[in-house]
């Protein structure tokens, strides 16, 4: 279920699965705590103050137990723009895979996370870290679009199965 919440936050679930995940996450105290925790981490890593919701003490406790994340500090807008641009340019040769890799969650960026357990939080932390160097990730989307490379919205994640149709 934790994985479902992670996927839900990343917009990776189909409508039915998303509905199920939402229902489940608000019905169960533990799932609700996970949901809040993920948002708090996501907000913090994006350089925003965490959302103003009532955080149960256990969320705070869980946060304190998380690994230290070495994300760069937020910069002023102009600098951030350049940072985003540089990051985008680095993947320009094969931006398609880099971009999809981020979205699919398979591009591990463990270098930015000091891993000390807490495996349940790792997927979200990884994904968020990828966009953490800048608040203006939009420029990367521009670069991807400009090079006529597929953008993540164009994809559904698909997984292994025994009998995929031979095309």
């Amino acid at each position: 279920m934790t994985e479902q919440i992670s996927s839900l936050m990343d917009g990776e679930l189909e409508a039915q699965d998303a509905e199920r995940a939402i229902r489940s996450c608000c019905a169960d105290e533990e799932q609700k705590a996970t949901w809040l925790l993920y948002h708090a981490i996501g907000d913090t890593m994006r350089g925003q103050a965490p959302r103003d919701f009532a955080r149960p003490a256990r969320v705070i406790a869980a946060l304190q137990a998380q690994p230290t994340v070495l994300a760069p500090k937020r910069r002023i807008a102009a600098t951030a723009f350049k940072v985003a641009f540089a990051a985008a340019a680095s993947v320009a040769t094969v931006a398609v895979v880099a971009w999809i890799g981020v979205q699919g969650g398979t591009a591990e960026r463990t270098d930015a996370v000091v891993a000390k357990g807490a495996s349940n939080i790792q997927p979200v932390a990884n994904k968020t870290t990828v966009v953490a160097p800048s608040v203006t990730v939009d420029e990367q989307a521009y670069l991807t679009a400009h090079r006529q490379l597929p953008s993540p919205e164009l994809y559904r994640p698909v997984t292994n199965r025994a009998a995929a149709p031979a095309r």
């Binding site: 094969v94 699919g104 969650g105 398979t106 997984t159």
Partner: peptide, 21 residues
Amino acid sequence: MYCYFPDAKTVKLDRRTTARF
């Protein structure tokens, strides 16, 4: 264009991409 992620055993396809390298 197919994009493979061997670790995740995932493949993604785009038919309309014109990207060439």
